[in-house]
């Protein structure tokens, strides 16, 4: 079982959380101008790297807040998503 660090409550068991998928998937600025392929890509296509991925998680059984973490998909090692690191991406 993973031990996940909620930025508010601290370390908690994985069962207290739900997964929210890849982070930073922005809603299209002009959705009405997208063709079906582009809309489909926005809805369904996500990065699937072997390595670090920024993800959304929600602490369902705790504070019920959403937050982002950077997880290494190979090792499940997690680190906080730090805004300064965000801007350099």
């Amino acid at each position: 079982m993973l031990l996940i660090r909620c930025p508010w409550c601290g370390d908690r068991d994985e069962v207290e959380f739900r997964y929210g998928g890849q982070a930073d998937v922005d809603y299209p600025a002009d959705p009405e101008r997208l063709d079906d392929t582009a809309w489909g890509n926005y809805l369904f296509v996500r990065a699937n790297p072997l390595g670090t991925l920024t993800e959304r998680w929600v602490h369902t059984a705790g504070c019920r807040r959403w937050f982002s973490v950077v997880r290494d998909t190979a090792t499940n090692e997690m680190s906080p998503d730090i805004p300064s690191r965000r801007e350099s991406r």
């Binding site: 409550c9 068991d13 069962v15 207290e16 059984a61 705790g62």
Partner: peptide, 10 residues
């Protein structure tokens, strides 16, 4: 205090 799971209940 902690909001957490006791068994399957929040």
């Amino acid at each position: 205090c902690a909001q957490t799971l006791l068994g399957r209940a929040v």
